[in-house]
Design a protein around this nucleic acid. Sequence first.
DNA 1: GCTTTTCTACTACACATGTAGTACGACGAT
DNA 2: ATCGTCGTACTACATGTGTAGTAGAAAAGC
Lengths: 129, 129
Amino acid sequence: MNKQRDVSLSELQIALMRVLWRRGESSTADVATELAGERGLKHTTVATVLTRLEKRGVVAQRREGRQLFYRALVGEGDVRRSMVADLVGALFDGDARALVAHLVQESEIAPGDLAKVRRRLARGGQNGE
Amino acid sequence: MNKQRDVSLSELQIALMRVLWRRGESSTADVATELAGERGLKHTTVATVLTRLEKRGVVAQRREGRQLFYRALVGEGDVRRSMVADLVGALFDGDARALVAHLVQESEIAPGDLAKVRRRLARGGQNGE
DNA sequence: GCTTTTCTACTACACATGTAGTACGACGAT
DNA sequence: ATCGTCGTACTACATGTGTAGTAGAAAAGC
């Protein structure tokens, strides 16, 4: 496996990673362009964050001419696992069921969705709508 | 209601809050003592964190003699709501069902638990809005 | 070739957090 | 009264993060 312990990322970092997860290896400019729309980020900002992620070993960089291309070294699943576990540990006493109960109670999901999710997964359904 | 915006807390801050949620108003020493066991925190550290939480309006302090007593101003539910929403927003595209699917896939909960949770909630069922 | 645009590398800076140490005043013990 | 103790207020300092500006090299445009 390639589990590097605890991959907790900030919202912004996740946003950058999402671009990499979606488009695969991308240049700083690519990422910056994608995010320019939703967030008004200057592209030096994107470059900085990317550099830091590289330093942390979350992404790998490859140089091509004067440009840098980045590639995610951790999958979205890794981050989800890690962060969800942290949250459940800190706020739900490590009991994931309590989290589900919370979601239903807070109307984040309808009770019927639980059955739906279950059926979908039972059918070997992985992810990807 | 008393919904104050985003109440995102760090793991440590949550640990302190848990003490307040559990014991109600407590002195710095009380909180420090409770946490001394699990974490080796000096009690000035606890005092500092508590002060910062107060500054942020997450807890209220009351002075009694030279001692300070703290009381949580946000409930555990508020923090859960806020933080779960953040997580779902950042990592699951705002789709709570995806989070549930993740939990099941990662074996954080058994498929059968979904039904259990649902039944349990259906019974004592209360539902906001 | 000379100018303009692009990129990356550095530097900067404010704010949050984890983690204390220290100073000082109030308290309790003797 | 005195002295050690407790508790708070302040200060400190490293690290991570959000957000960029600037300098300097390289590539593209004319």
